[in-house]
Design a protein around this nucleic acid. Structure first.
Lengths: 151, 151
DNA sequence: CCTTGACCTTGCCACCGTGGCAAGGTTCAT
DNA sequence: ATGAACCTTGCCACGGTGGCAAGGTCAAGG
């Protein structure tokens, strides 16, 4: 008897406020591919399935996916997002835990920013002294070669 | 007849100023693993081999490896480094080409820096308003959930 | 001569986050 | 009933790096 209702199950699901993975992707801004990936990482619970084995998502699931998308936007790693989701779902969390995670992430970002900035500064300095014309002499290459800027 | 000289070939090579991959790694600051990887990417030419199939490196090879290490330190991608190596080896290059590559890379760095900085600013703002105590209310989670900072 | 240990060889798997493609199944509208 | 649009799983790729395993080579010392 599952076969009987199978044919219409997806549209039934739609009627009841459930979404296919494509629709969930559209609503959350996460590709179907990544939604499946997050499921495999156990970031999100296994989606319910129709008789035809299609995943279906509730409005609450979409909400979770949006949460993930925003967290990615802040640069959190998948692992951190897993923790954040746990805290979000736990009504008895302490805001201290969230803040600690965020603060740690901010210092990570600071390190990355500082690293990129020092690369940028070094390169800008070199590029500034490069003629940038048809001559071969170039302080950038000299630097990479480990020579004094022999310009 | 290769078998005759095989036994001593590595030490012979050493006498002639050639280095094993481990020594090259030590001198260049690049792990043996990555040296092999760069070879497979054709970033560096295939190393010569002893009769025992050990790779051997000349002082010039070490120089190239150092070049790569410095370029990585400036954040250039492998592909960009390939181009830089080509320019370095080409006596008739125009410094303009090098400068263009570097300038492009600087703007890439600027984009990344700006992205990280905006993440950092947003998070810092949220974290600042988080009590960070035992209470569950947290503007960081509210933000991720897409809610107004309901604090 | 033979052993020992340090080094080398190749090859495969992992990370992270994402994208692509292929081969097949389902659903829906015409 | 057919075709288009969607879904399913599974594998491969990127970049750049690390790890591990199973085997070969080399130098030194008993």
């Amino acid at each position: 008897m599952p076969a009987v209702k199978a044919r219409a199950e997806l549209s039934e699901a739609k009627d009841q406020g459930y979404y296919s993975i494509g629709k969930a992707a559209e609503l959350s801004g996460i590709t179907p591919k990544m939604i499946r990936h997050y499921e495999s990482l156990q970031l999100i619970p296994k989606a319910a399935r129709t008789a035809g084995d299609y995943r279906v998502y509730s409005a609450a699931d979409i909400h979770t996916l949006r949460f993930i998308r925003r967290a990615r936007g802040h640069g959190f790693s998948m692992e951190e997002i897993g923790t954040l989701l746990g805290l979000w779902r736990n009504q008895r969390r302490a805001s201290e835990q969230v803040k600690r995670l965020a603060t740690k992430h901010i210092t990570d970002l600071d390190h990355k920013i500082a690293e990129l900035q020092s690369m940028r500064a070094a390169l800008a300095e070199l590029a500034e002294h490069c003629h940038g014309d048809s001559r071969p002499d170039c302080p950038i290459l000299s630097d990479l070669a480990g020579l004094p800027p022999a310009e």
